[in-house]
């Protein structure tokens, strides 16, 4: 699903953020991306979202080489990649409902369809009672769930999370992880960037370790996957996405219709 070949990223100030990174994330995988601050985790996520372009090397997402993707096609690529930021990046002047609805509205869905799908997802994430609230009125955990809802509402093939539990207390972080694992079980490829060693240790999933811009370790899944616990503060229900219309329907095929590659 995600393939990097000898990816190099150098910033205009001469700083090498990534050097010769080669890796592959298969469809339906759950991968942690870790390393100390400045290791290149965020840069890697930025490259996957085409917020920045590689200096050298190739990145393939869903089989498409995003290095040669035209600027005009970038939005269509991003629609297949859900993204959750550490600071949530919710729009303060829009309600919870409207924040989640954005991802569908950009696709030109009818208001009715938007209402139906957002309603279902908020219901699944037990956020229905907060639909009319503004992000500023929500707790950190609620904001993170809204951000995840926005990332998932258009059923992307890939979900990228940048420190999704970083701003939350451990219990809430645990809930969010359970939610992400649920999403992954439904077929979405999930990449979680985190520097929380405890979190990685606890779940024993495949972990890519970056240090000073290079991939220093590709630690396979330990096999001792921690059971999905339902902590006492489990705001997320037994199957939060059960009411969602469908799991990630598309997989790699979702990227097939992103046309218009540069010659």
């Amino acid at each position: 699903m995600i393939q990097l070949y000898h990816v190099h990223k150098r910033y205009p100030n001469g700083c090498d953020a990534l050097s010769d990174v080669t890796m592959r994330v298969r469809e339906g995988e759950f991968v942690f991306l870790t390393g100390p601050s400045g290791a290149g985790k965020s840069t890697l996520l930025h490259l996957l979202l085409v917020m920045e372009r590689v200096t050298d090397g190739q990145i393939l997402i869903g089989g498409r080489n995003i290095h040669v993707l035209r600027d005009a096609s970038v939005p269509y690529l991003r629609r297949n990649i859900g993204v959750v930021f550490q600071d949530f990046r919710l729009i303060g002047r829009r309600t919870v409902f409207d924040n989640v609805a954005i991802a569908l509205e950009i696709m030109g869905l009818t208001r009715k369809e938007v209402e139906r799908r957002v309603g279902q997802l908020l219901d699944g994430l037990r956020l229905t009672h907060r639909a009319g609230a503004y992000p500023g009125d929500l707790s950190g955990g609620e904001q993170q769930r809204v951000a995840i809802a926005r990332a998932l509402v258009n059923e992307p093939a890939i979900l990228l999370c940048d420190e999704p539990t970083g701003n939350l207390d451990p219990d809430l972080g645990h809930d969010i992880m359970n939610l992400l694992l649920d999403v992954n079980r439904r077929g979405t490829t999930v990449v979680v960037a985190t520097h929380d060693a405890g979190l990685i240790e606890r779940y024993g999933l495949r972990t890519l370790v970056l240090a000073r811009g290079t991939l220093v370790e590709d630690r396979p899944r330990s096999g001792r996957l921690a059971p999905i616990e339902r902590g006492p503060a489990a705001a997320v229900g037994p199957d939060p996405l059960a009411t969602s219309t469908a799991a990630t329907s598309a997989g790699a095929a979702a990227f097939a219709d992103i046309a218009e590659e540069a010659p």
Binding site: L49, M51, A72, P75, Y76, L77, R78, R79, V83, R89, L90, I91, R93, I102, A103, I106, M107, R150, A151, N154
Partner: peptide, 16 residues
């Protein structure tokens, strides 16, 4: 500015 960046990151076209 923030809103515009977020819209862009979730796949809004420049026109949108």
């Amino acid at each position: 500015r923030d809103e515009i960046e977020i819209l862009s990151l979730v796949g809004a076209t420049p026109g949108f």
